[in-house]
Nucleic acid binder design. Structure first.
Length: 589
DNA sequence: GCCGTTTTCGGCCCGACTGTTTTCAGTCG
């Protein structure tokens, strides 16, 4: 998406009716900010572009749609007259003259160089001016020839560092899935618990905000003997390299490629440090500004009036000092949570304990590992009232999808089990494949026998957005259609989301009595947080499901809940927080 | 470039660590 947007921004267009998505506009602004920074522009001007990009990425409505309705974009936060015009220009022409002009003096590739650790805009500019270095590859060659250490401000160490960077395996540089980060985080906490109480150790950062992917781990420890804790931390046996080590802050890299920052503070600062280390950065900046307006200063040690500390021990105290209630970590993205909290309108978020059943689970009849009985008993053990068995249908050959006959047999089995088992109801369902023309992959005669149909796309992901939307709406027209599973069919880091007209699709679902799933598989987490929020704002209810392929995967429910919480979703916005009777009344037939 | 219960101009979050320096700039989170 990023690359596509940049291509568009730089290339002439031959189409009409162009509409730029928010993330595409954001990508253009981000590139402009990168290049402006190298060009030594006013840092606050640079920040204005970055702030706007971030705001656009978190927005649940398309700026292009607002423009279509004739709305004034400068009413949006971080968007003023100038940026509103630039968004208009992008939306109309697909290009941005300011960016094209800037590229004439600052080669676009220089932005990539700032991503090399240790290189910021100043050094990149210097490398370009003095050695005409424009790409990471040119940088590597210059370092190998020993040319860098001759530059003022660069030295032997810097050159060594860069050489080490180019020598190292870069395959793990990308953000990793929350689920994978969790395993590492658990081991780190276990390691640190030898020198600190577990209550005094928190994995903060985007991990605590439950972001779908995690770039690094930020560990905060409260301790009166920081040096002892820090020495123990840097002794962790998975560490491959210590990037920096100080008395209160260290950065290391693990053999897995994961970067870990450890910060140690005293107990009296723990709350302030938690806020600081949990982020997001934008949330913190807003808090600090708010503090300034009250003649207070917030840093990671506390809240200060002059030199006197007025809060810091708990997060609640720190928020209270700037007249705010505690704000849940999942909301701390500066997407309106501070304003909502200020008005006492912070959303009440769905909790794992609110979930009454799972509406997406497979068995060994297709690509799952366990039987219907085993899945049902595992669901009962988790305290659920119901579980929908949703095996694939025939079109999904790779999963040995069910034919009508095989599904009929499974439905008989479910009847028998429902007779036999108490305390859990097995719902008759299937993950019905949505074919390319929008028809469903099972005959009506059997669809009619299901309690609900969970429907999903597994092929033909790359139709045009209009065609894809049409396909899905046609599917939802079917009277049996209940839930659209993994609505964009993305796989994090592997497959981009299908391009659909999401607002149109959500409104169509709403009109037809259909619901969208939030799939808890660690590589799916589909819908994402922004779309969850969009659904909530439009009144479209969600099904939080696991898509479990084994009994233990029923635990993925918490990832689905996390994602929904990041989208401001409450208990009432979720259909499977209800008893089966209530849920049934929400289904269209 | 944005923004306003101090302001429509003059501000814009804050501190730790490193390397290359003799007191600090650059980078990072």
């Amino acid at each position: 998406m990023h690359k596509e947007a940049l291509r568009r921004a730089g290339a002439p267009l031959n189409e009409c009716g162009l509409m730029m998505h928010n993330d595409e506009i954001a990508a253009v602004f981000e590139q402009l900010a990168d290049l402006l920074e190298i060009d030594n522009a006013n840092p606050f001007r640079v920040r204005a572009y970055r702030d706007a990009a971030r705001m656009l990425r978190g927005m649940s409505e398309e700026a292009a749609d607002m423009l279509k309705r004739g709305e004034d974009l400068s009413k949006l936060p971080t968007i003023g007259k100038d940026l509103a015009e630039k968004i208009g220009e992008l939306n109309k022409t697909g290009r941005l003259k300011a960016l094209e002009d800037l590229k004439k003096s600052v080669p676009a590739g220089l932005a990539d160089l700032t991503r090399v650790p240790g290189l910021g805009p100043k050094r990149v500019k210097q490398l370009y001016d003095d050695l005409n270095i424009r790409t990471p590859d040119e940088l590597r060659k210059a370092a190998q020839k020993g040319e860098l250490q001759k530059l003022p401000g660069f030295g032997e160490k810097m050159e060594e560092k860069l050489l080490a960077y180019f020598k190292a395996d870069r395959s793990q540089d990308d953000r990793i899935r929350l689920f994978d980060a969790e395993k590492i985080a658990d081991r780190l906490v276990e390691h640190l618990s030898a020198v600190a109480r577990k209550n005094d150790i928190t994995v903060a950062g985007s991990f605590r905000r439950r972001k779908e992917t995690v770039g690094d781990l930020d560990i905060l420890v409260a301790s009166a003997s920081p040096e002892k804790v820090m020495d123990h931390f840097t002794d962790f046996d998975e560490i491959s390299k210590i990037d920096s080590k100080g008395k209160t802050r260290s950065t290391v890299r693990l053999r897995s490629g994961m970067q870990v920052d450890c910060r140690i503070v005293e107990k009296d600062s723990y709350g302030a440090a938690l806020i600081y280390f949990t982020g997001s950065k934008a949330h913190n900046i807003k808090l600090r500004k708010r503090a300034l307006a009250r003649k207070l200063k917030v840093n990671e040690y506390g809240v200060f009036k002059g030199k006197e500390s007025v809060a810091g021990r708990t997060e609640k105290d720190v928020y209270a000092s700037v007249d705010l209630p505690f704000i849940l970590p999942e909301l701390r993205e500066d997407r309106g949570e501070i304003e909502a909290a200020e008005k006492g309108k912070q959303p009440s978020l769905v909790k794992i304990g609110d979930i009454r059943g799972d509406l997406h689970a497979h068995t060994k009849a297709t690509d799952g590992k366990h039987s219907v009985r085993e899945m049902a008993l595992a669901a009962k053990k988790r305290g659920y009232a119901y579980i929908a068995i949703t095996d694939h249908t025939k079109h999904v050959r790779i999963a040995h999808g069910l034919t009508k006959a095989r599904l009929e047999k499974q439905l008989d089995e479910i009847d028998r089990l429902n007779e036999e088992l108490s305390g859990i109801r097995i719902l008759k369902s299937a993950e019905v494949d949505i074919l390319a023309d929008g028809s469903l992959d099972l005959p009506d005669v059997i669809l009619e026998k299901l309690d609900l149909a969970v429907c999903a796309v597994h092929f033909d992901f790359d139709l045009t957005p209009a065609k894809q939307t049409e396909r899905l709406i046609r599917a939802m027209d079917h009277p049996a259609f209940s839930i659209l599973a993994h609505p964009t069919s993305r796989l994090i880091g592997e497959r981009d989301p299908m391009r659909v007209e999401m607002e149109t699709l959500m409104d169509a679902a709403l009109e037809r009595g259909c619901y969208f799933e939030v799939n808890g598989q660690p590589e799916r987490l589909d819908l994402n947080d922004v779309y969850c929020r969009m659904a909530r704002e439009r009144g479209l209810k969600l099904a939080l499901s696991t898509d479990a392929h084994s009994t233990d995967q029923l635990d993925f429910m918490r990832f689905s809940v996390d994602q929904a919480r990041r989208g401001w979703v409450g208990k009432k916005d979720v259909i499977n927080t209800r008893s089966w009777r209530e849920l049934k009344s929400l289904l269209k037939r």
